[in-house]
Design a protein around this nucleic acid. Structure first.
Lengths: 115, 115
DNA sequence: CTATTGTTATAGAAGAACTATAACAAGCTC
DNA sequence: GAGCTTGTTATAGTTCTTCTATAACAATAG
């Protein structure tokens, strides 16, 4: 399965799923105009409720990554521009943060502060 | 007040408070060996429960940013090394992410993925 | 027309977050 | 030592979020 969630994690399932799909989009593992699995199917595959899947989909729609239409499904928008520079900078930050023995939460907090 | 929380936010109060204090430490706004407000006092000042404050304090202790001792209070540790390089890289990422019209949540998710 | 798919509504269960009180233990000050 | 301050632990209850379950509905595709 392309997308995964961890029922044992402390973060909400719908957030995990949104993050998983978002990562696939940003990294280009799913292409523009490609259709995501139907919410019902993905719910069955991940053994979670359809509403949990839909909540993840709606979060991604609010962020502009996908479009949702009845009958048609969830389609990846053409937001897929050049994320390579950002990905490279993120790798730099992660390495630096690990050296400083920071946690992902601490780095996220710094980003929110800098925003 | 140096530290703030937003009761209307979707994220937990204790996380907000931890993030607020963490940001103050990493940016040097609170010095090494400086004492944070007593949990009881901060609880009154922010109009939240003392346990909510203590949970934030304990999170920061787990991350190594402060030390907690009864009678003495919460003291900032000497983890304050050179965060300037990280801060600069974070500014770069924030600028890049804004240009790409990403959300702070999306960037945080990407960081967790890259971790 | 029929099947597919997201949307909306309703309801309930489980867990996390937050609050409230109170007693306790370690450190500080005098 | 006496007394105050401060974090720690315990207990309990309320509220909110998350997740599930079921069902009907509306737009799209074929």
């Amino acid at each position: 399965m392309l997308f995964t969630v961890d029922p044992g994690s402390s973060s909400p399932l719908f957030e995990q799923l949104a993050a998983s799909i978002r990562g696939a989009i940003l990294s280009g593992r799913v292409a523009v105009n490609e259709r995501l699995p139907a919410a019902r199917d993905l719910a069955v595959a991940l053994d979670i409720n359809i509403h949990t899947v839909l909540r993840a989909y709606q979060e991604l729609r609010d962020e502009g990554f996908i479009e949702l239409r009845r009958g048609r499904g969830a389609v990846v928008t053409d937001r897929a521009r050049d994320y390579s520079a950002l990905a490279r900078d993120i790798d730099t930050i992660v390495a630096e943060a690990k050296r400083l023995e920071l946690t992902p939460g601490a780095v996220s907090a710094m980003i929110r502060e800098a925003w």
